[in-house]
Design a binder for these strands. Sequence first.
DNA 1: CAACCAAATGAATGGTTATTCATTTTTATG
DNA 2: CATAAAAATGAATAACCATTCATTTGGTTG
Lengths: 214, 214
Amino acid sequence: MEAVNTKANDTPRAMPKQARRKQLIQATIKCIAKKGLSSTTMADVTQQAGLSMGIVNLHFQSKERLLIETLRYISDEYTDGLNKIFNDKSLSTEQKILAHINFDFSRAIIDRNKLAVWFAFWGETKSRPTYLSICASYINEIANNLTHLFALLKQQGDYSNVNPELVCTCYTALSDGLWLDLLITPKGMKPAQAQAVAMHYLATQFPEHFKNEI
Amino acid sequence: MEAVNTKANDTPRAMPKQARRKQLIQATIKCIAKKGLSSTTMADVTQQAGLSMGIVNLHFQSKERLLIETLRYISDEYTDGLNKIFNDKSLSTEQKILAHINFDFSRAIIDRNKLAVWFAFWGETKSRPTYLSICASYINEIANNLTHLFALLKQQGDYSNVNPELVCTCYTALSDGLWLDLLITPKGMKPAQAQAVAMHYLATQFPEHFKNEI
DNA sequence: CAACCAAATGAATGGTTATTCATTTTTATG
DNA sequence: CATAAAAATGAATAACCATTCATTTGGTTG
């Protein structure tokens, strides 16, 4: 997901394969947001990317693989961001949790184009095992990490009746639901507001740590 | 949404128009769950319903209208169920809220076929104003009712720092997120468990009323 | 700069799919 | 029972779309 040389204006033909793939994935995200997954065509994607019809099959073999790579792209972006926080040894447990929430509602993540992509794929998981397995793997990974953080925080205060697993499940579901609000009621729910709702829940569980954040 | 005469085995041709439309909508729900919105075809739907190709255009004019009516169907089913609870004068405020949660995680609502339909349409709202407006209207209606219930409950206990609007937003998002868990991790999350998570949140806000429900 | 190679193009192809409508089947009416 | 009206059928049609591949373009190398 890191900086790939995308000097599209200079010498397009010299772009590394990886960069062209990224360009096509980003065009796909825009198209899914603009036209919906069900009516996004190869012609739409290639035109959005400013390239020719055959290009997708050249780089991805098929439309289906392009879609899978698109899901993997946003899913990796999300997981990588959270892992970086989780593995950052300069942060305290409390700071990691705060950074996690900040990330969940950061511009790059709650971009409405990407939210549209998330929901489009979630809607198809029941019929596409490949989509489901991509989603399932990142979900477990994140849940384990976050539960661990809550368990650590529990030891740092008077939180004897906090259940870290339950809090993780609840926080995660809440975050997903707030993403939905950001997607379908853009005028009613602003990112900062969504983040405040998430903080409000954490404050109910860890008042000593998060009461002041609201 | 009420009982429509569907005597499919007796005299199919005599079914009222409304019933045939319902039959087609239910076939559509099954197909979207089975094949995904993007690859559900007219042939799939009519075959699932045990009818002939031309039937959808006869009753719905076009595929697009069938899809819109399908969204309206699940959306009405949900809204009607909640309104019935909200308007039931035999229930106390507390009982209404409990009934609301029970309904949110009842078999009819968290049927995985229907969940797949919800997410499929949510994923397309950004590109289809019609889908968006159907969703937007029911969301506002429910939020107003639920906020009102929380405001009433606030007066029945030591809840001076409870914010009914915030609690409504948070509960609603949580519920949507739990629906996602039920859709994509069916083996990990059971309906009763999801409901318990929702109750857990309400207990943080109204401990005097809901602490014992967990 | 010439020759080669990789990347990209886009017209052509073939398969898929929504929609139509002439025909058939069923129900209602007198 | 005969006739008319309504409902349903499904083969035919026309539009659409993913994929292919012969050709062109651009970059690299010696």
